[in-house]
Design a binder for these strands. Structure first.
Length: 825
DNA sequence: AGCACGCCGACT
DNA sequence: GTCGGCGTGCTC
């Protein structure tokens, strides 16, 4: 038998797999998707995933052997591997980067170099002298068995301890070895149980009680145990024992418990438990209104023809109920279901709603979950415990093996697109691909579909179902446009609130109703400015002004996290007249508390929801009526469904509308409609107040009339004329370097090379990026608009990859970073 | 991305 | 003189 080889995917940004030899001993037990340990480079040990198994020995090098197998089952299935490769190709990144994003951290291992004393080392008759710094390391190793390179560096106060360690190795004083650590640790519970003979014989137990009658604390524990676990009535219950916590929580003595264990009366044992509670789903039937039932039937009919269906349902039309029906059917047929939600909707009512129906067969995949929790969701899908997962963007990577349906709720949400580390994927689009690989169906749901999806629906690529009724007696809210400039002239603008806005909020407060105030900017004020000379504090490392955060008395950069104290005086002219310009949520909340001193005001934005349950806490407070007004960013537009909200205020609609991006209009329509949808659900009618400087902008009237289609047609003619998506495919390449000249030159050079690629396209730029400098790196953008026909995008990407490889190998551009963003936002 | 090797400046 | 800065090349 010739030897077998495995192409292993490793978490390194190199565009290929690495071929390793499969040792005979592992030959029968490995395959695609297994986690393996391999040596990479001189000593680094990494975990990788087998992407392919074959018999072709590599010609140019000797393959190293696979060192070990981590599990006795594949962690990733072949469908996922296909999906990874598709993603790497489509989003122009490396397979290792996809793997990195796909595997929960807990399943990734990497080794750490450790040093230990060489037991053979003879300190006395040592032929080489040990210097002071080496001695420090050796002394430290006297008390600790092992040290990492980092520990050594800290000990010596130097950045790199490499040279010293190398010298010690040479002198044979220490040994270097690699330690791989499994990051995932199961949650264990300590339990106790009664030992023999006390379990089987009542007499023995009685004897025992006599013996310990003088030790009341021990007696107490024993009584507690027997009360919780009636051993003699139900002998089998002893096997499972009792959680140790039950004893300690009852305030009983831990040391007495230890004595009982030491005396072999009780026995301690450990069990692995789940991090998720078992919840029973109630099977209460979901009642659909006639129009929802009709929608459901239409979806099914569309699915007969199309793989993907767009469900266009206005806010309050009850899309969730339709989802539930569909999910139930798919689950009953034995297939799996994935429901994608935008991150910020995941902690809300929809999840608890679903949990009530689906109980513990439903897994939740959160971005705030710990690494261990993520591994458990992963394992849960693998083992079949979860046949249904509700999750964020990254849950498309879970190890499903037989998806029957993927639902993407709020399909238009920009947060489905990942920007920063590669893969820069759009989860909605990836979900459609994933679903296709499973030969399953995809349902996209939205009240304000993305133009891409709506376009696909109109082109008959997707099926289309429209729900335009609201459930129950819910009415659409009444819109009011409030002109900021008019009020300002008449001196009616108080603390940035127009008279109409203040009146509406006051009315709500008078009626014990609630108000939601939307402002898409966190912090106190976007920036500060000197009244005398116009100086504006800017970030030292980025090309942006610093945001003023009042609460922490700081100026912060939202791009690199840089912060500094608020300047006392203007460094340019010495003036003390520094004022804040513009408004963030923090300032809005402050203004409201001045305008409505009696109101209880809450704020919800990135700064107030950093901790795991902060979001839920604020929502619960609001839901319970402990708050009258909630101020927030986008976060408040999602999944909130509170009866008492009758007023929704948009403080600065122009900020959304006049954004330098071709999608600004689309986004404004979506955002305003979404926030507005929070007003007056059920039988109360609500008001939406929009503050703007240009109330006659046509877009407002289309939003008010809810005329999505009209709006769409208008905007699309513009997009067609100027070659914007969805008429073309776009691709953005950012060039980054710490020297502006080099960054610019590299970008120019690249754009010239791209011009030669024989594909129908438009190349724009290079141009200084919107934010020209971030973290001391200068950025230049090239935007490419690709013809969608004839496979042009794929051809172009292929050529691009080669051009980039070539460019990177030129020595002038060695340290230049290129990032490719396909379908950027 | 790490990590090792190699070639130059500022210090005991 | 050396330490240690980081530029460059390589990883099956």
């Amino acid at each position: 038998m010739p030897p077998s080889f495995a192409d292993v995917i490793l978490p390194v940004p190199i565009p290929k797999m690495f071929t390793y030899r499969i040792p005979r001993s592992l030959e029968s037990s490995v395959g695609i998707g297994y986690r393996v340990i391999v040596q990479f480079g001189k000593k680094k040990v990494l975990t990788g995933i087998i992407g392919k198994v074959h018999k072709k020995p590599p010609k140019e090098y000797e393959a190293k052997p696979i060192l070990d197998l981590l599990d006795d089952y594949p962690v990733v299935n072949p469908l996922q591997i296909k999906f990874w490769f598709w993603m790497a190709e489509y989003y122009c990144c490396h397979i290792g980067e996809v793997m990195n994003a796909a595997l929960p951290t807990g399943l990734k291992l990497s080794s750490e170099s450790k040093i230990q004393l060489n037991p053979k080392f003879d300190f006395v008759s040592n032929e080489f002298p040990i210097d002071d710094r080496e001695q420090v390391i050796l002394d430290a190793l006297e008390s600790k068995d092992e040290l990492s390179y980092e520990d050594c560096g800290k000990l010596l106060g130097v950045k790199s301890s490499y040279a010293i360690i190398k010298s010690l190795v040479l002198k044979e004083a220490v040994l270097v070895y690699e330690q791989v650590k499994e990051k995932y640790s199961p949650k264990v519970e300590s339990r106790i149980k009664l030992t023999e003979p006390y379990t089987s014989s009542k007499e023995e137990l009685e004897k025992l009680f006599e013996q310990i009658s003088k030790k009341p604390k021990q007696e107490e524990i024993l009584l507690k145990y027997l009360q919780e676990v009636p051993v003699h009535k139900f002998p089998e219950k002893n096997k499972n024992g009792l959680d140790k916590k039950t004893i300690t929580d009852a305030g009983l003595s831990l040391s007495s418990l230890k004595t009982l264990i030491k005396n072999k009366v009780l026995e301690e044992f450990k069990v692995v438990i789940s991090r998720f509670d078992e919840l029973a789903g109630y099977d209460h039937p979901i009642e659909l209104a006639d129009f929802q039932e009709e929608g459901l039937q239409n979806i099914k009919t569309e699915f007969e023809q199309k793989q993907t269906v767009l469900l266009h349902g206005i806010t309050g039309s009850g899309k969730t109920e339709i989802y539930i029906k569909l999910i139930q059917e798919v689950l009953e047929s034995g297939s799996q279901v994935l429901l994608l939600l935008p991150e910020i909707a995941l902690t809300t009512q929809i999840v608890s709603r679903l949990q009530k129906v689906f109980g513990s067969q439903m897994g939740i995949f959160h971005s705030k979950y710990s690494d261990n929790e993520r591994v458990e969701v992963w394992q849960g899908v693998l083992s079949g415990r979860f046949s249904f997962v509700v999750g964020v963007r990254s849950s498309v990577f879970l190890p499903f093996d037989s998806l029957g349906m993927v639902i993407v709720d709020e399909e238009h949400e920009a947060s489905y697109k990942q920007f920063d580390p590669a893969p820069r994927f759009q989860a909605r689009d990836a979900a459609i691909m994933l679903s296709w690989l499973h030969q399953s169906k995809t349902l996209l749901g939205s009240a304000t579909p993305s133009f891409e999806s709506f376009y696909n629906a109109r082109m008959k690529k997707y099926g289309y179902v429209h729900l335009n009724k609201r459930f129950g007696e819910a009415q659409l809210p009444e819109y009011h446009l409030s002109d900021i400039l008019v009020d300002k002239k008449k001196n009616l603008l108080k603390l940035d609130f127009t008279r109409l806005m203040r009146e509406k909020i006051q009315e709500a407060l008078n009626q014990q109703e609630q108000a939601l105030i939307f402002q898409n900017r966190r912090g106190y004020a976007p920036y500060m400015s000197c009244e005398e000379c116009g100086w504006i504090p800017e970030c030292e490392h980025c090309d942006v002004s610093l945001t003023y955060h009042q609460y922490s008395e700081e100026m912060r950069c939202h791009y690199c996290g840089f912060k500094e104290k608020v300047p006392r005086a203007c460094p340019a002219c010495g003036s003390h007249k520094l004022t804040t310009v513009g408004m963030g949520t923090e300032r809005i909340a402050e203004s409201l508390s001045l305008l409505f001193p009696e109101a209880r005001i809450g704020r919800m934005d990135l700064d107030t929801t950093r901790s795991k349950y902060a979001y839920q806490k604020i929502l619960e407070d609001f839901g319970a009526g402990n708050l009258d007004i909630l101020v927030g960013t986008q976060m408040i537009t999602k999944g909130l469904d509170f009866d008492r909200v009758t007023v929704v205020g948009i403080v600065d609609a122009d900020r959304i509308l006049y954004f330098p991006d071709f999608r600004a209009g689309e986004r404004a329509f979506q955002q305003i409609t979404q926030v507005a949808g929070r007003a007056g659900r059920r039988n109360r009618h609500g008001s939406v107040v929009i503050q703007t400087r240009k109330p006659d902008n046509d877009i407002f009237h289309q939003i008010i009339q809810g005329n999505y289609e009209h709006f769409y047609i208008n905007e699309m003619s513009e997009r067609q004329r100027f070659f914007y998506p969805p008429f073309v495919k776009t691709l953005k390449i950012t060039t980054k370097h710490k020297e502006i000249k080099i960054a610019e030159r590299a970008s120019k050079h690249l754009s010239n090379l791209l011009k030669d690629i024989p594909v129908k396209k438009i190349i724009l730029g290079p141009e200084k990026a919107l934010i020209g400098k971030i973290k001391n790196q200068y950025l230049f953008d090239i935007l490419i608009k690709l013809d969608k026909s004839n496979n042009a995008p794929a051809l172009f990407k292929h050529e691009l990859a080669m051009v980039l490889e070539e460019l990177k190998s030129q020595k002038d551009f060695k340290s230049v970073r290129f990032t490719v963003d396909v379908d950027p936002y």
